[in-house]
Computed example of a mutant assay.
Amino acid sequence: MHVAETLARSLRRADCHYDLVEHPHSATSLESARKAGIPAAQMAKPVILDDRRGHYLMAVVPANRLLDLGKVHKGPWRWQLTSEQSLGGLFRDCERGAVPALGEAYGMSMLVDPALTRQADIYLEAGDHESLVQLPVEEFFKLAPNAQLCSLCQ
């Protein structure tokens, strides 16, 4: 099991209570939820956006939902999906495609869909394709105290 160093450091600093959940290799958040045997509504899926001028934003939605880009409003920027090539530079301690849904730990602002707040526990990628971090929703927000709640899903 591998937890990205940035995520591990954030968990320690916030003194969070969490568990690690192993699962067979997966390629997407939705597949991770299925293989780990957890409800997809509890799996936090990060979608990284940029404004083409060096500003990044993480939108976090349940894995069984799609981001509605038209609902993303933050500042004067026009957001677009970030290219796969850019993600490697932003999340250097993570395997490609296994980004933890904690943008604040990586220096970016976060928007979180309220559907995730209705869950007792939230799961997020740990930084590899075989591990998830499970934590109570209150602990998640200890790690992302500046995250803004707003409806983001279609």
Rank of each mutant, 00 (worst) to 15 (best):
H2G: 05
H2W: 08
V3N: 12
A4N: 03
E5N: 11
E5R: 13
T6E: 07
A8D: 03
S10F: 10
L11Q: 11
R12A: 07
R12K: 15
A14D: 01
A14M: 00
A14P: 08
A14R: 10
C16S: 14
C16W: 05
H17P: 00
D19K: 10
D19Q: 07
D19N: 15
L20S: 06
V21P: 13
H23M: 06
P24A: 14
S26Q: 08
A27K: 14
L30W: 05
S32K: 06
S32L: 06
S32W: 06
R34A: 09
K35M: 00
K35G: 00
I38V: 15
I38T: 04
I38E: 08
A41Y: 00
A41R: 14
Q42N: 11
Q42I: 00
M43L: 15
M43P: 12
M43K: 13
A44Q: 02
A44I: 02
K45V: 15
P46W: 01
D50M: 01
D51Y: 04
R52W: 00
R52V: 03
H55R: 08
H55C: 10
H55D: 14
Y56K: 11
L57H: 05
M58Q: 04
M58H: 15
M58C: 12
A59M: 05
A59R: 03
V60G: 07
P62G: 04
P62R: 03
P62F: 06
R65K: 10
L66K: 15
L66F: 05
L66N: 15
L67W: 04
L67I: 05
D68M: 04
K71R: 11
G75L: 10
G75T: 09
P76I: 12
W77F: 13
W79N: 08
T82A: 13
T82V: 00
S83Q: 14
E84A: 09
S86R: 11
G88K: 12
G89C: 05
F91E: 13
F91A: 07
E95Y: 06
R96Q: 02
G97Q: 07
A98I: 11
A98L: 01
A98G: 05
V99C: 03
V99T: 13
P100Y: 09
A101I: 08
L102I: 13
L102T: 08
G103C: 09
Y106P: 02
M108V: 01
M110N: 04
M110A: 04
V112R: 12
A115S: 00
L116Y: 08
L116T: 10
R118V: 02
Q119P: 02
Q119W: 12
A120V: 05
A120D: 05
I122C: 07
I122S: 06
L124Q: 05
L124N: 00
L124V: 10
E125K: 01
H129N: 12
H129R: 09
E130F: 04
Q134T: 15
Q134N: 11
Q134G: 01
L135H: 01
P136Q: 15
P136R: 15
E139M: 07
F140C: 14
F140Q: 03
F141C: 01
K142S: 04
L143D: 13
A144V: 01
A144D: 05
A144S: 14
N146A: 06
A147M: 12
A147D: 11
Q148H: 09
C150A: 12
C150H: 04
S151F: 06
S151G: 03
C153E: 09
C153A: 08
C153T: 15
Q154P: 11
